[in-house]
Design a protein around this nucleic acid. Structure first.
Lengths: 206, 206
DNA sequence: TTTGAATTGTGAAAATAATCACAATGTGAA
DNA sequence: TTCACATTGTGATTATTTTCACAATTCAAA
């Protein structure tokens, strides 16, 4: 498998989403310039990226929206169906439950976990909440590979270590803690404060 | 102002946070290797980054935690106090209100806005919620430059255009919509689904 | 059929970022 | 004082990413 830059992956995911939207609007063809405008990246970068995934358009009609969408999806090898769990059903966790399952039919949050007894056995946005104590068994029995962590920072490292031990090797980490985990675990840190600080930097400083 | 790569800024923000934590633990000195381990970046990159901000440690004692923290803060020129508003008081908006104001004393969310009359005039996590109709005036009167958008995707573009027109030039966009705005507006897109898709890619695809 | 306009695909160049390797520095022990 | 050690700071190198520039392609219209 040829190695593709992380930035390229980011952009492909954005293209894919925009293509999905075009598809919904029954747009059948799109030019690199249009895709560039929609995604916010320059058009030559769009073309370069599409080269990487191996899709070829035509100079006359640009790219076929449905084919390209399919092609990027295949490339990202979003498999038929990925099952994900969410740990920590606070405000943020519930927001994610609400949001995620309406966005991508191929990636589903299939269970939630929390330590609060008032939340356990409840259903939030269609997802059943189990007690955190059962998470390791759940991961093993259902062969879960990806988890979203939205617990308080103080608990993040402990839980992360446990789920990795049980077989998880991809984590979306919404806590402000930098998790210390084996190198083969892919961690995507989505600390919201970081995004805000960056904006403040580029607005005031730069 | 010399131009610093966005990636460097990202890392600096992470260092700053880890330094803050060390400071709390009364650690007075830190070596690049330690900072590397905490932040997850290689140590030579840490040293290179610190070169960029112009802080110099000593081979014997590494870096002084308090000085370095101060130096990075100054470099990021997080000014004395930045006032930010949040638009859209749903699950996600409330989670952010809860989370942000306890993280960085120099950046505060000072007001929230929503169109739902049941939320207007309420206080969530200490922040007063105004009706969305008043947001343009509020921005002008209080000279707001940065906003967090957590409204439904369908409303995002309209609101973004309005607030930019009123003077905002930095946006943290939590909606899945790619906002079309003038080039001088800095936009940080934090689409949560994107993070999840990325993890799925790197876990399953390789 | 030929021309013209728009767009793609891509080699090559430029710009940017990350890594390496090591001299310089300071410290503590002998 | 001298030596050994660990660490910093940085020039040089390597690798990666982005941009440029233009030939090749396709179609519609004359």
């Amino acid at each position: 498998m040829k190695s593709i830059a992380e930035n390229t992956i980011n952009r492909l995911i954005v293209y894919k989403k925009e293509l999905g939207r075009l598809l919904k609007d029954s747009v059948s063809n799109v030019y690199s310039h249009k895709l560039a405008q929609l995604s916010g990246f320059p058009s030559h970068l769009v073309r370069r990226d599409l080269m990487n995934v191996g899709y070829y358009g035509s100079p006359a009609h640009g790219y076929k929206v449905n084919e390209l969408e399919k092609c990027i999806s295949d490339f990202l090898c979003t498999p038929d169906y990925v099952r994900v769990i969410l740990i920590g059903v606070g405000n943020l966790g519930r927001a994610i439950l609400d949001y995620c399952n309406q966005q991508n039919p191929k990636i589903s949050i299939i269970a939630a976990f929390d330590s609060d007894k008032n939340k356990v056995n409840k259903i939030y946005h269609g997802i059943y909440t189990f007690h955190i104590g059962s998470v390791q068994n759940y991961i093993k029995e259902n062969d879960i590979k990806v988890a979203i962590i939205t617990v308080p920072g103080s608990e993040a490292q402990k839980i992360a270590s446990e789920i990795v031990e049980s077989g998880v090797n991809g984590i979306v980490n919404f806590t402000p803690v930098r998790l210390q985990l084996p190198d083969d675990v892919y961690i995507e840190n989505l600390d919201m404060m970081l995004g805000l600080e960056k904006v403040v930097y580029f607005v005031d400083g730069g």
